[in-house]
């Protein structure tokens, strides 16, 4: 049975480097996913993920446990990505995530091509959503956060998070039609 975040956190706060490794290994894909969806740029997402972990692991003493550690970390990831986006002042109209690191379609080249095309399309339409809608969809669909936690992460109420999510899904359906 995997060690609970709370136990790992206690060890990390005590300065155990192995505990930090566990936290990074456990949450890196989620943090990177959120950063990539906010920024639409693979290299910037790397930097944002790094910033998020440096900020979070450097502030473990300030984690009060009101939300889960994962929700707290994802909120920091959202903030790190937004901060980086502001600094870079880059437009995200066209996603640059496609091509590298996409899921493998198996040995069938036609299936791989089809899957890559589909992934590229998904990334492109997600990138066209307004930021809050994109984040609400990302945090709800990919990260499985509750609407309350989505609101906490993106800085709005639970109701606003729900509205942003449903508007985002509706828009995606229109774009993918």
């Amino acid at each position: 049975m995997p060690e609970e975040d709370a136990e790992v956190l206690a060890r990390a706060r005590a300065g155990d480097p192995a505990a930090l490794e566990v936290l990074v290994a456990r949450h890196l894909s989620d943090v990177y996913d959120v950063a990539a969806r906010v920024l639409g740029d693979r290299d910037l997402a790397r930097d944002a993920a790094q910033d998020a972990f440096v900020n979070a692991l450097g502030a473990l003493d300030r984690f009060r446990g009101d939300a889960s550690f994962r929700t707290w970390l994802l909120r920091i990831a959202v903030n790190a990505a937004r901060s980086l986006a502001r600094r870079e002042a880059r437009r995200r109209e066209v996603s640059l995530l496609a091509v590298d690191g996409l899921p493998d379609g198996g040995p069938d080249p036609a299936a791989q091509t089809s899957l890559r095309a589909e992934a590229g399309r998904v990334e492109a339409v997600l990138a066209r959503l307004p930021e809050k809608q994109r984040l609400a969809v990302t945090l709800r669909v990919y990260q499985g956060l509750s609407f309350r936690d989505v609101g906490e992460a993106i800085g709005c109420s639970e109701g606003a998070a729900r509205v942003n999510y449903h508007h985002g899904i509706k828009r995606l359906r229109e774009l993918l039609r």
Partner: peptide, 9 residues
């Protein structure tokens, strides 16, 4: 959407 998570580099 869920078929296409972003892979960690």
């Amino acid at each position: 959407l869920r078929r296409h998570p972003v892979a960690v580099p």
